[in-house]
């Protein structure tokens, strides 16, 4: 009986040791909910993992939180969309090797019948003013994400302080949930096109794009590695492997080939290889 127990224990221990020895390399990628919700990672990561054998674990939070997580060294690489915040974090020495990767754009979506009559308006600030003047509900991410940062900069341009207003709902959640809440509340919201296209049919949203194409709504995504000088335990080599792949011909091609089920391309690759900041 005792011998049997001993053998069992040895077996278990051996399994542990073997599994550790053969464990695949994993890196932690901190990214945004809008990227995750669009389904991009399920499309590109298998290609990368197959090529390099490096497994990528994605943590999806708002851009602001993503940068904070990277600063604290709780991730190896960040893939976010708030250029100014990213460049600032690089300048402060928390991240290195930032590259532009791809872009899409933001759109303003609202109820199908567009009660604020935004359709036909050309500028996002004009649209925001109309929402404010009519007191139509507007759902804000309110989570310091890239989308939220963009939205706040638009409100600032209009000179309106929306915080605390009755028609302004701050939800503090991801993009897909924010769209869902806007749909239920018959409200307007600002969303990235990728999440909108991915969700509108799946969730049967009774909403339409009421404004698109304003240059103010351009949405640039960037990737950067956590500075290994700040955090020694970071898997810098593997993180750089991911970054270099993302901006390589193959990586860029994989991003371009990601389409929703109607064949719309969701992200436009625009990396300038070897031109990191």
């Amino acid at each position: 009986m005792r011998l049997k127990g001993f053998f069992l224990l040895t077996l278990i221990l051996l399994t542990f040791i073997v599994s550790i020895a053969f464990a695949e390399t994993r890196i932690r990628l901190v990214s945004t909910t809008s990227t995750q919700d669009s389904g991009l990672f399920e499309h590109i990561l298998p290609v990368f993992e197959k090529r390099t054998g490096i497994k990528v674990d994605v943590v999806a939070v708002g851009t602001g939180a993503a940068i904070e997580i990277g600063k604290r060294g709780d991730a190896d690489v960040a893939f976010v969309h708030a250029r100014e915040l990213e460049l600032e974090a690089v300048k402060d020495g928390y991240f290195v090797n930032r590259h532009d990767v791809m872009y899409n754009d933001f759109v303003i979506i609202g109820p199908t019948n567009d009660p604020a009559a935004i359709k036909g308006t050309k500028s996002a600030t004009e649209a925001f003013k109309k929402i404010r003047e009519g007191g139509y509900l507007f759902v804000s991410r309110g989570d310091r994400s890239g989308t939220h940062t963009k939205e706040l900069s638009l409100w600032k341009k209009t000179g309106i302080e929306p915080k605390g207003q009755k028609w302004y709902l701050e939800v503090g959640q991801g993009m897909a949930i924010t769209q869902r809440i806007a749909n239920e509340k018959r409200a307007y919201t600002l969303t990235d096109r990728g999440t909108w296209l991915a969700a509108k049919d799946r969730e049967r949203l009774e909403m339409i794009i009421v404004l698109e194409g304003d240059p103010l709504l351009f949405n640039q995504y960037g990737v950067m590695a956590v500075n290994p000088q700040k955090h020694k335990h970071i898997k810098y080599k593997e993180a750089m492997g991911f970054i270099n792949w993302l901006i390589s011909k193959e990586g860029q091609h994989t991003i371009a080939s990601f389409k929703d089920k109607h064949g719309n391309q969701l992200f436009m690759p625009n990396a300038k290889t070897g031109n990191g900041q």
Partner: peptide, 9 residues
């Protein structure tokens, strides 16, 4: 609830 500030938070 949706965690809406000042309403369902």
């Amino acid at each position: 609830g949706g965690n809406i500030a000042g309403y369902t938070r």
